[in-house]
């Protein structure tokens, strides 16, 4: 079913669906540079669209409720939790997942730094950590303040800044110290 807009639906008000009725929507997403056409149940989260429909299983599902960060991806360059957004809400938008950041042959500098500093143990949180870390450095660069920034106007990279900004990515293995070293390496702070 194509997505109706309010103009058409004002002529034919959509009846509320009865439980059990499934509503489908067609959409297209630009994922890691390639346009992907999809037909999905409207309930499909962006996370499930990536993992189940597009088979990009690098992005992980931890809590599915916005509490762990394992599902972090970049949408139009900004990090978000893909578990708390619907795929249909991202028609035409650009999504970057861990698969799009780098490849085994050509690692993204953040991926290489995580390998070098052993920024993981089981690795389950790692794709989310890396996507988040890439965006964190851009946010600091752009002067976006954080809870620990002493001045709202002069944001400088520091361990405290990185810890605060990465607090939305939980690591059950507790690899935090090495994750911090990896981000510092890319961010230009001495580890």
């Amino acid at each position: 079913m194509p997505i109706p807009d309010t103009e058409t639906s004002s002529r034919t008000p959509a009846p509320d669906p009865v439980p059990g009725d499934v509503s489908l929507a067609r959409l297209s997403l630009r994922v890691n540079g390639a346009v992907r056409e999809l037909e999905l149940d409207t309930r499909t989260t962006l996370l499930d669209a990536l993992r189940e429909a597009l088979r990009l299983t690098g992005t992980k599902k931890g809590c599915d409720h916005g509490q762990c960060g394992a599902c972090t991806v970049l949408v139009e360059g900004r990090r978000i939790y893909s578990c708390l957004t619907l795929a249909v809400m991202h028609e035409g938008e650009s999504i970057t997942t861990i698969e799009g950041l780098g490849t085994a042959e050509a690692l993204h500098p953040m991926q290489a730094a995580f390998v070098k500093h052993d920024g993981y143990q089981c690795g389950y949180c790692t794709p989310g950590q890396i996507c988040s870390a890439v965006a964190v450095l851009e946010e600091i660069e752009a002067g976006i303040p954080s809870h620990v920034s002493e001045s709202l106007d002069a944001v400088r990279i520091s361990d405290a800044e990185i810890r605060e900004r990465m607090s939305g990515n939980i690591c059950r293995c507790g690899a935090y110290a090495n994750i911090l070293d990896a981000i510092n390496e890319v961010g230009g702070q001495p580890a």
Binding site: I3, P4, T6, D16, V22, S23, R43, V88
Partner: peptide, 12 residues
């Protein structure tokens, strides 16, 4: 299940 639409204006 739910149906989905994109709003075209605040009043709409």
């Amino acid at each position: 299940p739910f149906t989905y639409e994109r709003a075209q204006s605040p009043a709409a």
